[in-house]
Design a protein around this nucleic acid. Structure first.
Lengths: 118, 118
DNA sequence: ATCAATCATAACCATCTCGTTATATAGCGA
DNA sequence: TCGCTATATAACGAGATGGTTATGATTGAT
């Protein structure tokens, strides 16, 4: 029961941009209006609106309505699906970390006890 | 100690393409030559070579050398970093799942005991 | 020495992406 | 009604992306 591939495409593509990741990080703190989201960036408001639309199309964000404002809210389920997909590869990076740990252990073992070098 | 942003850009962008995700899935089974990787796709060999290069630039894959073959090997540490970034949002999707669970519980509670419908 | 196999590279093309500026739309408050 | 605020949309351009075909480089086999 994998999420449909097209959904993963949209999710990963949305996450591939640092501005959009920063927007998500901001939204993790709490909902925000478009202008609030735009404030930290040296970028026009329409540019931010476009980024929000990309996030919305990926289902990562939804919008409310408050007078003229369209508060944006994080919707993290697609992120969960992305992690779900990535989890298939957990054993590989765990192996890698383990190899690194082993290496560090050996360096430790063969280092003279009082050696402060490095 | 976040991975540098540019690295996350490359990782997520690499994952945004279904062909590349399929290549990674194949490599999870074991190393493979370019031709082996290309075989399942209705796509030219140069196209696959390009995809492999994208994966390589993102550090998701490395290459060996065996006669004319350039066996490709999965390198999953960047995936681990990607998951690391995504983990910041775990609480959101857990809340969402919890809301879903609550909903399902209530549906359960109010469903007639013997109701087989759906 | 040549041939076939494996893979990479170049040139090209269509389409998408990410930014811009200019303008339109909608709601609030005076 | 008027004008301000908040946001969306349109039109445009530069550069990235994802595919193609044609060709080049390297290596093993005959």
């Amino acid at each position: 029961m994998q999420p449909n591939p097209n959904q993963l495409d949209l999710t990963f593509a949305a996450l591939a941009d640092p501005t959009r990741r920063a927007i998500l990080a901001r939204l993790a703190v709490g909902d925000a209006s478009v202008n609030e989201l735009a404030a930290p960036f040296e970028m026009s408001q329409p540019a931010i609106s476009k980024h929000i639309k990309v996030l919305e199309n990926a289902g990562l964000v939804s919008r409310g309505k408050d007078a003229q404002r369209r508060p944006v809210k994080i919707e993290a389920l697609p992120l969960a699906d992305a992690v779900g997909w990535l989890e298939n590869y957990r054993k590989f990076w765990e192996q890698s970390y383990q190899r690194l740990d082993t290496l560090l252990d050996e360096l430790q073992r063969f280092a003279p006890k009082g050696d402060k070098k490095n």
